[in-house]
Design a protein around this nucleic acid. Structure first.
Length: 326
DNA sequence: AACATATGCAACCGCGGTCCA
DNA sequence: TTGGACCGCGGTTGCATATGT
């Protein structure tokens, strides 16, 4: 069906509103209500289209509009609602009195979306991004394909790739925990530097992991955590910087944890930082909260969509090089 | 100090839904 | 039932300001 263009007719004014135009619009709406937006500009003596007037009123001039920075509580509400509703800005705005859909949309696009991406989350699904690991799985498949084509025995290397993919996913998981801790423990832009710092260090580790994966076939003997070579190799010990977190994680700072005491680099069973040849405990909200020094509340961690890497248990228990812990 | 680049946000655009003659 | 008029929504743009070099 036909629709007449709204604003490109009759040389109607576009662009920023002047204080005089604002005053005319406010005075008219306060006196008569807006009624028909189509007719309003003419009645109010404005050389604007009705759509522009409606937008100006609803997004800027309405008396009940709340301006200024979003509070941490409002941020959390937006994150939670967006994870359920998606880009339904008007629906989200209905839960935030005084905030407009346009304002929330802008805040999302300029702040929250970027922050989720930095934290390694998909901003649409609120789930950890999997593209990196998809690439690794493809690499593993290619390695196995290469073996088929070239008749070259690559089982060891393919297994190592798979193990290192798991280790890389552990890193991403830690990055998300660190970011969640920073987000829960501070507000505004303060935590961004913390997250960015974690990103830099973790991404460089991920990069080095990827470089190692790409340098196949491996010319060096595989070593276990004690530096010993083995036909049934364990992964080399991986140093995880404590500076990823607001405070160092150790058994001392984790006294309230329902896990056994652990520290970064701890390879004992029960430690979330152990090498992938050890079984993993299920991480609960409480343990995640403890993991990050108590800064991450169970509700926030739960709402942030943080989950332990999806393929940890299967991969760790099924892989022939990981031993049989079942 | 000057320029380049990044960021934030108000405003615009176009589409889909609803109302009503 | 049809189609024009209007409203509301989500995506995008463009400009002003902030920040970096």
């Amino acid at each position: 069906m036909g629709r007449s263009p709204c604003c490109d007719e009759n040389g109607l004014k576009k662009g920023p509103w002047t204080p005089e135009e604002d005053q005319k619009l406010v005075q008219y709406v306060q006196k008569h209500g807006h009624g028909s937006w189509r007719a309003l500009p003419r009645l109010a003596g404005l050389n604007r289209c009705g759509k522009s007037c409606r937008l100006r009123w609803t997004n800027y001039l309405r008396p009940d509009i709340k301006r200024g920075r979003f509070s941490p509580e409002e941020e959390q509400i937006i994150l939670n609602l967006h994870s359920v509703l998606g880009n339904k800005w008007s629906a989200i705005a209905s839960h935030l009195p005084g905030r407009t859909d346009n304002e929330i949309k802008n805040f999302w696009n300029t702040h929250l979306k970027k922050r989720l991406i930095q934290m390694g989350f998909d901003p649409m699904t609120h789930r950890p991004r999997t593209d990196f690991f998809d690439a690794l799985q493809q690499l593993i498949a290619l390695a196995k394909l290469g073996e088929l084509i070239g008749g070259r025995p690559l089982d060891d290397h393919a297994a190592r790739l798979q193990a290192e993919a798991a280790q890389a996913e552990q890193l991403q998981y830690l990055q998300q925990l660190a970011a969640a801790a920073a987000m829960a423990g501070s507000s505004g832009t303060d935590h961004l530097s913390t997250i960015n710092g974690a990103d830099l260090e973790t991404n460089s580790l991920l990069d080095s992991q990827m470089s190692s994966l790409l340098s196949f076939p491996s010319p060096t003997p595989l070593q276990d955590i004690n530096g010993q070579t083995s036909d049934n190799p364990l992964l080399p010990e991986l140093e995880i910087p404590c500076s990823m977190f607001d405070q160092p994680i150790s058994s001392e700072t984790n006294q309230s944890s329902n896990l056994t005491g652990f520290s970064l680099g701890d390879n004992s069973p029960g430690s979330p930082f152990m090498s992938p040849n050890s079984p993993l405990p299920p991480l609960t909200d409480v343990s995640i909260g403890s993991l990050v020094g108590g800064a991450c509340s169970p509700s926030i961690c739960g709402n942030s969509g943080i989950n332990p890497p999806s393929f940890w248990p299967d991969m760790l228990f099924d892989d022939p090089f990981m031993g049989d812990f079942a």
